[in-house]
Simulated assay, not measured.
Amino acid sequence: MLSLRRGRPRRLRPLAVASTALTCSLAAGVLTGCGGGGGNGSTGSRTPSTPNTASFTGSPPSALASSASSAAASARASASAAASSASARASEFEASVSAESARREATAEKKLKGVKGQGNALSEVGMSGMPKAQTGGVLAVLVNITNKTDRKASYAVQIDFEDSNHHVVETRYTGAENLEPGQKQQPIVFSRQPPERKLTPRLAKAQRY
């Protein structure tokens, strides 16, 4: 009985060896060896392979140059759009007041032709500047005309735009008609000179009629 028990392990040993060999064979696709292979105990380590540069795309220098070029083009487009927008706002502002302004200007210029000096209504007219952000960059003046008399009256006003040397560069006219006593009107006068010019508006004449 004892010999039989001792013999059974001897029959199983070949099976265990075969199982081990099979395990190593199945793992061969993953590991380079199993148990042996050099005896230095580093069978699991592998030498890093060199990346395949053929899979890389793009060239950093040209890509950066393209990015810079795109940024510059975008900046130029933004500046051009801003200039166009300002021009459009100026045109819209001028168009909104041009029809009435043209009529008032013609009437006022006609009424002031024979007036000497500064006229009889300078104290009834005032001016205030308008923000260029509101007028689209156009130099514009809000003219305040108030009838300070006790009867209905009309007014003709002359505005001169002067440069830094006090030379009159441009003259514009406006006015108000049939104002009741105490009534006020605020026509707008704007310069047709380029916005870059530094001009100062001056109340030249105001005539009540």
Rank of each mutant, 00 (worst) to 15 (best):
66 S>M: 12
30 V>T: 09
27 A>D: 03
62 S>R: 08
157 V>G: 07
64 L>Q: 12
202 R>P: 05
165 N>K: 13
177 E>T: 08
34 C>F: 02
67 S>V: 02
104 R>V: 01
104 R>M: 10
147 N>Q: 10
148 K>Y: 08
2 L>C: 05
84 S>W: 00
60 P>S: 14
116 K>E: 13
57 T>L: 10
31 L>N: 03
52 N>Y: 04
91 S>C: 01
89 R>T: 04
187 P>E: 12
126 G>S: 13
36 G>N: 12
132 K>E: 03
143 V>G: 03
72 A>Q: 14
121 A>V: 07
76 R>C: 00
138 V>W: 01
137 G>S: 10
179 L>A: 13
49 S>L: 14
75 A>Q: 12
164 S>G: 05
194 P>W: 06
180 E>L: 15
160 D>V: 01
130 M>S: 00
74 S>Q: 12
202 R>F: 07
115 V>D: 03
106 A>M: 07
16 A>T: 05
196 E>C: 08
159 I>L: 14
124 E>D: 12
198 K>T: 14
3 S>N: 11
27 A>H: 03
187 P>D: 11
111 K>S: 07
147 N>A: 10
96 S>N: 05
105 E>D: 07
96 S>R: 05
23 T>W: 00
29 G>C: 02
61 P>S: 09
28 A>G: 11
88 A>C: 01
15 L>E: 04
38 G>L: 14
122 L>P: 01
154 S>C: 02
151 R>H: 13
134 Q>S: 06
103 R>Y: 04
123 S>D: 15
157 V>C: 08
52 N>H: 05
28 A>K: 10
120 N>Y: 04
61 P>M: 06
90 A>I: 04
181 P>R: 11
10 R>M: 11
91 S>H: 03
126 G>C: 00
135 T>C: 01
177 E>P: 02
43 T>I: 13
63 A>C: 02
133 A>V: 01
104 R>I: 01
165 N>Q: 12
24 C>A: 14
176 A>E: 06
55 S>F: 11
201 P>F: 10
12 L>A: 13
71 A>C: 08
69 S>M: 09
85 S>Y: 05
84 S>F: 02
167 H>I: 00
94 E>V: 15
25 S>F: 09
108 A>P: 06
137 G>Q: 06
52 N>R: 10
70 S>T: 15
67 S>N: 05
105 E>S: 14
24 C>P: 00
162 E>M: 09
198 K>N: 14
66 S>W: 06
96 S>M: 03
142 L>F: 00
117 G>T: 08
128 S>E: 09
15 L>N: 03
88 A>S: 13
92 E>F: 10
76 R>G: 00
148 K>H: 09
44 G>D: 09
50 T>D: 10
138 V>Y: 01
2 L>T: 15
177 E>D: 09
109 E>W: 06
89 R>F: 00
33 G>T: 14
111 K>W: 04
149 T>L: 03
73 A>M: 06
209 Y>S: 14
64 L>E: 12
72 A>G: 10
106 A>G: 04
22 L>T: 07
144 N>Y: 04
65 A>L: 15
2 L>Y: 10
46 R>K: 09
175 G>I: 15
53 T>N: 07
188 I>C: 01
203 L>Q: 10
28 A>P: 02
47 T>N: 13
162 E>H: 05
187 P>T: 11
129 G>A: 01
11 R>I: 12
156 A>G: 11
84 S>D: 09
166 H>I: 02
182 G>V: 15
122 L>S: 10
146 T>W: 08
194 P>L: 05
71 A>H: 11
71 A>I: 11
